[in-house]
Amino acid sequence: MLKPITLHQAGSQVTEELRACIGCNECLLACPALTEPITIDVLNMQTFSEPISSPVARFARSCYQCGACVDPCPVGLHRDAMMMWLKVRLLRSGQGK
């Protein structure tokens, strides 16, 4: 049985999930889009607020929202939604928003 499609999350929900992340790296280990090692703390920081470094930006653009990162999370977080938030931040930064 296929799981229902999860849509985007609002910023406040993403913030709560980022705070709840225990940093186990399971999501990154399960990711088929990740080409270079990135630490979860850097990814979390840049997802939320900091300027986006080149490796994190490359990872965010390469992420194709397959959802492989969601099932391995031991605390049930939605890394795909966080990556979408990062994508939107990248998009808006390019538009000067």
Binding site: E36, P37, V42, A57, L90, G94
Partner: peptide, 21 residues
């Protein structure tokens, strides 16, 4: 290239999300 919390500030920053990459 691995970025640790210590040296991530030295790496370049990027903006934008192009269609073709």
């Amino acid at each position: 290239m691995s970025i640790s919390q210590r040296n991530w500030k030295r790496v370049q920053y990027e903006k934008g999300y192009p269609w073709l990459f």
